[in-house]
């Protein structure tokens, strides 16, 4: 089975009358040789680990972010959103707290699911699990959502990149956000076309985002960008579910992102030679963490 882009997938979905996650499972069966049961079971384990990462991250007492650039941000947001009326609404404020939680766990050498990368590991769990809670969905819906997300990510990987070192943060947080947007659109009952529209909107919205980690560590701005990626996904999903399509189709957005990656200077691709990494504060933090050499 050759699947190159979203058109191929939508074609199969239409012909077989199935959602994207069904195509994803068949695709995985074809390419891995494992049975459907094994594949679904493995994704189930990944889902459970994501849930666990959120919970562990929110309860990080014994561990610290190793660079000490921040700590307990997820907890602060959780407390705030319970005591106040969060301006970004209940689902988004929760999703952001979840994303921060998973990233704080990641930064303190905890166990996470790279999705698509470790630096963007907060987005998918945050979006899928907060949406599940709002929509009152069960675990199996969450697992299906991960298949949808995985299929969208695979398409991006085939036509562009998922790595900050190659494509900037648009490729990492942008892709995670697009994957998450598509996943929750299907979860909420949207069509495959709508799912890809949401992915397109999410990815367009962060087109050109550079990768500029302070001191070369996946912490600042990464943790908060996971929060942004999560909210961006939910906003894109809501727009599409309201009937707003993406003007530019998903495959063309991916193509455009790849073009942007190609001309993005290397200073903006994980080298920490640009962006916030070279601000006076960014440089001071780097020197404090690594010494002056």
């Amino acid at each position: 089975m050759m699947i190159k882009n979203s058109l191929d997938i939508i074609e199969i979905c239409t012909k077989e009358n199935v959602p994207i996650w069904e195509v994803a499972i068949s695709y995985e069966e074809a390419q891995s040789g494992f049975s459907r049961e094994e594949i679904v079971e493995k994704m189930g384990r990944h889902f459970s680990q994501m849930q666990k990462s959120i919970d562990t991250g929110l309860d990080l007492d014994d561990r610290k972010i190793r660079s000490k650039m921040f700590r307990d941000d997820a907890k602060k947001l959780m407390v705030y959103r319970k005591k106040n009326k969060p301006l970004s609404g209940t689902t988004i404020s929760k999703a952001v707290a979840y994303a921060l939680s998973v990233m704080e766990l990641n930064c303190s050498m905890g166990r996470i699911v790279a999705s698509p990368t470790a630096g963007s590991c907060g987005v998918l769990p945050a979006v899928i699990i907060s949406a599940m809670e709002t929509l009152k969905m069960k675990k199996k819906h969450g697992v299906n959502a991960l298949f949808t997300a995985g299929m969208v990510g695979t398409i991006i990987a085939k036509n562009a990149s998922l790595s900050g070192a190659i494509g900037g943060c648009q490729a990492e947080i942008g892709s995670a956000s697009a994957m998450a947007a598509a996943a929750v659109v299907e979860m909420a009952g949207g069509s495959p076309q709508m799912a890809f529209d949401a992915a397109a909107i999410a990815l367009k919205s962060v087109m050109g985002l550079i990768c500029d980690p302070v001191a070369g560590l996946v912490e600042v701005p990464c943790a908060k960008r996971n929060g942004m990626g999560a909210s961006n996904a939910l906003i894109a999903a809501d727009m599409v579910l309201a009937g707003i399509p993406s003007v530019i189709p998903f495959d063309e957005v991916v193509w455009a992102m790849n073009k942007v990656s190609q001309i993005m200077p290397s200073a903006h691709k994980e080298t920490s030679e640009g962006g916030i990494a070279i601000t006076p504060t960014g440089q001071r933090l780097r020197d404090e963490i690594f010494g002056e050499d």
Binding site: A24, H46, L105, I112, G153
Partner: peptide
């Protein structure tokens, strides 16, 4: 190239960086 869906959703790992 990425081939498997599990190259995108996964692996389960100890952070902070896949690379």
């Amino acid at each position: 190239n990425f081939n498997s869906i599990f190259d995108v959703i996964g692996p389960v790992m100890i952070g902070p960086s896949s690379s």
